[in-house]
Write a protein that binds this DNA or RNA. Structure first.
Length: 533
RNA sequence: CUCCCCAUAGCUCAAUGGAUAGAGCGUCAGCCUUCUAAGCUGAACAUGUAGGUUCGAUUCCUACUGGGGAGACCA
């Protein structure tokens, strides 16, 4: 139990004893007004907040456990309760700050990137990629069981795969980038064979050939993308889910359709089958089977999600690009219609706007101003790239400026954090040479302001993880990492570790722990923690 | 026309309805015989407009302005 949890519990008890009420107050970490602040008296609505706060404070002070961990309590401002931690509290929190989180029950499925296999990943994919990776890291660290999943839109029936096939056979130009052209050339023998055998089997439709050719090419593109994601981006997936292989041809579509039909949730119009999503919160009804009898993307997505929920996750998280935001309502409608058990959370990653000088351009493949993630990676390096994307909230529009990104690769705060880590390594190397790093010792004797600031920053770590696992605001981690590195840098300037007499052992213990947390946070972000820079 | 997201310092971004709105970059002024100066210290600079809810609004609600996205039997 951390001191924040302890404070919450004590406050709850006291408030109930005094007012017979349970309220949703908050204990927040503070810097200016003590170490923690509670707004309980302000939202209690039981008279003058200042007087209420004072009554609560007096009652709290009657507990010996409270007095052991809280050195000072103060009523301030409009009625806040401010608390200062005792050294006993710091010692305790310091001791457990890198403990393992208790395993939480149930499994979370997190699907992200899922780029269409029609070309290389561009910078828009970068956001979802790094965010998804970091989020699953945090969730796992916080004790959740997480499965990472990547959906491959490679169905031979899908219009885009057919378009890709058309291009592959030299009959179209959609998705035709230099990269795709090169892929086509490399696969020309197989494509030709495919085309020849199709001519023999005359009962097959031309669009079937496009589907086959597109599927073939998509497989090759996907191979490249997978390699890039795993090797260059350092992102691992537990499951690569192939639409063609695992969804199509397995009667999932028929079953899903039948379920809708049974509940009278579909109707036919203009030769197509429509789903009554408008009755379940969507703006209009949607087609699930086209008039040519092929299945729409929407039905495919429903079937896919039905499959996810069938696998029994407590929570299914999707990270989609902003261009998919229109799908959220219909997906939620489908969930209600089919009564899927479990939570579904769809996170939308806002678009990246390309900035060139003073003008903002729409970032799109068609405008020809696409920037590939691979090129950007080459330009700025993986650590700066990850930080660049992870530093910003998912739902803010990003103004992407290539010059800025290049510049930030040289002056990225990520190096500041890594630098702090490397400095600690450097000190510890010298310690080892002398007598070997000490094991855990009491740090309660450390009294220098820079030491206290560092310890206080460190003990926040479990809260940061817990909060991030709850609200998914991954950018909190970069802020924390930077703040921790800053606290260390100030400490480093003001306090000497080596040859510092009776405090040396405690200080070594402090920096060992600091290094461990820095490394852990960087690890959650997927950034390296170097020993030398 | 309808729906969604966004608007905070010169620039890129923070701030579960809280107290004196924070960082980085840039600008200006300082600090290296001492565990890595990729560092530290200081200065200047900000909540688009108008209302509303609240003890308290950058945050919630309404309207407006500006920017981006979506509105296919594409995915």
């Amino acid at each position: 139990m951390t001191t924040r949890d302890f404070l919450e519990t004590e406050l709850k008890k006291v408030i109930f004893a005094l007012y017979k009420k349970e309220i949703d107050f908050e204990v927040t970490a503070e810097e200016r007004f003590g170490d923690y602040a509670a707004n309980a008296a302000l939202i209690l609505r039981a008279g003058n907040p200042k007087e209420v706060a004072q009554k609560i404070a007096d009652k709290l002070r009657m507990s010996s456990a409270f007095n052991k961990y809280i050195e000072k309590t103060e009523v301030a401002g409009p009625g806040f309760l401010n608390f200062w931690l005792s050294s006993a509290a710091l010692e305790r929190d310091f001791g457990i700050l890198d403990r393992k989180f208790a395993k939480k029950s149930g499994k979370i499925n997190l699907e992200f990137i899922s780029a269409n296999p029609t070309g290389k990943l561009h910078i828009g994919h970068g956001r979802g990629a790094f965010y998804g990776d970091a989020l699953s890291n945090v969730l796992a660290y916080a004790g959740h069981s997480v499965e990472r999943e990547y959906f491959i839109n490679n169905s031979k029936e899908s219009a885009q795969i057919k378009e890709l096939g058309k291009t592959a056979l030299g009959e179209g130009t959609k998705y035709l980038t230099d990269y795709v052209a090169a892929k086509c050339a490399a696969q020309s023998a197989k494509l030709k064979k495919l085309s020849t055998s199709w001519r023999i089997k005359t009962h097959k439709l031309k669009t079937d050939l496009y589907g086959e050719a597109g599927f073939l090419l998509a497989g090759e593109i996907q191979k490249d993308n997978k390699k890039f994601i795993e090797r260059d981006l350092g992102i691992k997936f537990g499951r690569w889910y192939s639409e063609e292989g695992e969804l199509r041809g397995k009667k999932v579509f028929e079953k899903t359709q039948a379920a809708f039909k049974k509940e009278k949730l579909v109707y036919e119009k203009d030769g197509a089958v429509w789903l009554k999503t408008a009755e379940f919160g969507d703006d209009e009804d949607r087609v699930i089977v086209r008039s040519d009898k092929s299945y729409s993307y929407f039905l495919s997505d429903i079937a896919y999600h039905a499959d996810k929920f069938r696998r029994g996750y407590k929570q299914v998280i999707d990270i989609w690009g902003a261009d998919h935001h229109g799908h959220v309502k219909r997906m939620e409608a489908a969930k209600r219609m089919l009564g899927w058990k479990g939570e579904m959370k769809i996170l939308i990653s806002q678009l990246v706007t390309l900035k060139e000088g003073e003008t903002r351009k729409k970032f799109s493949k068609r405008a020809g101003n696409v920037i590939y993630l691979a090129d950007l990676l080459k330009e700025v390096g993986i650590d700066a790239l990850r930080w660049f994307f992870l530093d910003k909230a998912l739902n803010t529009h990003m103004d992407f400026d290539l010059e800025l990104a290049k510049k930030q690769s040289a002056e990225n705060p990520v190096y500041y954090v890594q630098y702090a880590h490397a400095r600690i390594s450097s000190i510890l190397k010298k310690v080892k040479r002398k007598k070997g790093a000490k094991k855990q010792v009491a740090i309660a004797g450390l009294r220098h302001p820079a030491e206290l600031a560092l310890i206080k920053k460190l003990v926040r770590f479990p809260e940061v993880v817990e909060d991030t696992a709850t609200d998914h605001q991954v950018h909190r981690l970069t802020s924390y990492a930077y703040a921790l590195a800053y606290a260390f840098s100030v400490f480093y300037r003001d306090v000497r570790v080596l040859d510092s007499g009776e405090n040396e052992a405690a200080r070594i213990c402090l920096i060992v722990k600091t290094q461990k947390i820095l490394k852990t946070v960087l690890g959650l972000l997927g950034v390296r923690a170097p020993d030398e820079m």
